[in-house]
Deep mutational scan, measured.
Amino acid sequence: ENVVSAPMPGKVLRVLVRVGDRVRVGQGLLVLEAMKMENEIPSPRDGVVKRILVKEGEIDDTGQPLIELG
């Protein structure tokens, strides 16, 4: 899985990584606010952040691509 998608609709509060960062499975990639709760979205695998497809403050839909890993 190279693309991390939104598991729920919500607002992107914080992006915790930058392009080029090495990430490990379970590491937080970004924080979504949904139903007044903050949810940290973890990396599904080890890899390198290739692209960040959303910006802080954006509203996303379920299934929307958020981050691409390489």
Results as ranks from 00 to 15, higher is better:
Met35Arg: 10
Ile67Cys: 04
Arg24Phe: 12
Ile52Asn: 00
Arg22Met: 12
Arg51Trp: 07
Arg22His: 14
Met37Tyr: 08
Gly28Phe: 10
Leu32Cys: 06
Gln27Tyr: 04
Pro65Asp: 06
Val3Tyr: 14
Asp46Gln: 07
Leu69Met: 06
Val23Lys: 01
Glu1Gly: 13
Pro65Glu: 06
Leu66Tyr: 04
Lys55Glu: 12
Met37Pro: 02
Ile41Tyr: 03
Met37Thr: 11
Val4Gly: 02
Gly20Pro: 01
Glu58Val: 11
Asp61Ala: 13
Asp60His: 15
Ile41Ser: 01
Asp21Ala: 07
Ser5Trp: 13
Gly26Arg: 04
Ala34Ser: 13
Leu29Phe: 02
Gln64Gly: 09
Val54Arg: 05
Pro42Asn: 10
Glu58Leu: 10
Leu16Ser: 01
Val3Arg: 06
Val25Met: 13
Leu69Trp: 04
Gly70Ala: 14
Lys11Asn: 04
Glu56Phe: 09
Met8Val: 09
Glu38Ile: 12
Ser5Lys: 14
Val49Tyr: 00
Glu56Gly: 08
Ser5Thr: 15
Val15Pro: 00
Pro42His: 10
Gly63Ile: 05
Glu56His: 08
Glu68Phe: 10
Val15Glu: 00
Lys36Met: 14
Asn2Phe: 15
Leu13Asn: 04
Gly63Trp: 07
Pro65Gly: 09
Asn2Lys: 08
Ile67Trp: 02
Arg51Thr: 09
Arg22Gln: 11
Glu56Ala: 11
Val48Thr: 10
Asn2Glu: 11
Val17Trp: 00
Leu29Gln: 01
Met37Gly: 11
Glu38Met: 10
Val48Gly: 02
Val31Gly: 00
Gln27Pro: 01
Ile67Gln: 01
Met37Leu: 11
Met8Phe: 15
Asp61Pro: 09
Glu40Ala: 08
Arg22Val: 13
Glu68Lys: 05
Pro7Lys: 08
Ser43Phe: 02
Val19Arg: 06
Pro9Ala: 13
Lys50Leu: 14
Glu68Ala: 08
Val4Lys: 03
Leu13Thr: 08
Val12Arg: 02
Gly63His: 08
Leu53Met: 12
Arg51Gln: 10
Thr62Arg: 12
Glu40Val: 15
Met35Phe: 14
Asn2Ile: 14
Pro65Ile: 11
Glu56Pro: 12
Val4His: 02
Leu29Glu: 00
Gly47Asp: 03
Ala6Val: 05
Pro44Phe: 05
Glu68Ser: 06
Leu66Thr: 02
Arg24Thr: 12
Met37His: 10
Gln27Phe: 07
Ile59Met: 12
Asp60Gly: 15
Asp21Gly: 05
Thr62Met: 13
Asn39Arg: 14
Glu38His: 10
Asn2Gln: 10
Pro42Met: 11
Val25Gln: 13
Glu40Gln: 10
Asp46Gly: 08
Lys50Met: 13
Ser43Thr: 04
Gly26Lys: 04
Glu1Lys: 12
Met35Thr: 07
Val54Trp: 07
Val4Cys: 06
Lys50Glu: 08
Ser5Cys: 15
Ile41Met: 04
Glu40Tyr: 12
Leu53Gln: 02
Val23Phe: 03
Val54Gln: 03
Leu53Asp: 03
Met35Ile: 06
Gly28Leu: 14
Val12Thr: 03
Met8Lys: 07
Leu30Arg: 00
Met35His: 13
Ala6Met: 09
Lys55Ser: 12
Val19Trp: 04
Ile52Lys: 02
Gly20Asn: 06
Asp61Thr: 13
Ile59Asn: 09
Val54Asn: 02
Arg51Val: 08
Ile52Gln: 01
Pro7Thr: 09
Ala6Gly: 04
Ile59Tyr: 14
Gln64Tyr: 10
Asp61Phe: 15
Leu32Glu: 00
Lys55Pro: 07
Arg51Asp: 05
Arg22Ala: 11
Val15Ala: 00
Pro9Val: 09
Gly20Phe: 05
Val49Arg: 02
Glu58Asp: 14
Leu69Thr: 01
Gly63Leu: 07
Gly26Trp: 06
Asp21Val: 07
Val31Lys: 03
Met35Ala: 11
Gln27Arg: 03
Leu32Arg: 01
Gly70Asp: 14
Asp60Lys: 15
Thr62His: 09
Val19Asp: 03
Val4Phe: 04
Pro44Glu: 04
Pro7Phe: 07
Gln27Cys: 07
Met8Glu: 05
Lys11His: 05
Pro65Tyr: 06
Asp46Tyr: 08
Glu38Pro: 09
Met35Asn: 15
Leu69Tyr: 04
Glu68Asn: 04
Val48Leu: 08
Leu13Trp: 02
Glu56Gln: 10
Gln64Pro: 03
Val54Glu: 02
Glu68Met: 11
Thr62Ile: 14
Gln64Phe: 10
Gln64His: 13
Arg51Gly: 06
Arg51Leu: 09
Val17Pro: 00
Leu32Tyr: 15
Glu1Thr: 14
Lys36Phe: 13
Gly63Pro: 04
Asn2Ser: 13
Gln27Lys: 04
Lys55Arg: 12
Arg51Pro: 02
Leu66Arg: 02
Asp46Glu: 10
Asp61Gly: 11
Asp21Cys: 10
Gly63Asn: 10
Pro44Ser: 05
Asn2Tyr: 15
Glu33Gly: 10
Ala6Thr: 06
Pro65Phe: 07
Ile59Pro: 06
Gly70Trp: 15
Leu32Asn: 00
Ile67Pro: 01
Glu1Trp: 14
Gln27Asp: 09
Gly47His: 02
Thr62Phe: 13
Ala34Val: 14
Leu69Lys: 01
Ser5Val: 15
Gly70Met: 14
Leu66Ile: 07
Ala34Tyr: 15
Ile41His: 02
Gly26Asp: 03
Ile59Trp: 15
Val19Tyr: 03
Asp60Ser: 15
Gly28Tyr: 09
Met37Gln: 12
Asn39Pro: 02
Leu53Ile: 08
Val4Glu: 03
Glu58Pro: 11
Glu38Trp: 09
Val49Lys: 01
Arg14Pro: 00
Leu30Ile: 13
Val49Gly: 01
Ser5Phe: 15
Ile52Leu: 06
Gln27Glu: 07
Pro7Asn: 08
Arg45Met: 14
Lys36Tyr: 12
Lys50His: 10
Gly70Arg: 12
Glu1Cys: 15
Ser5Asn: 11
Leu69Pro: 01
Gly20Thr: 04
Arg45Asn: 06
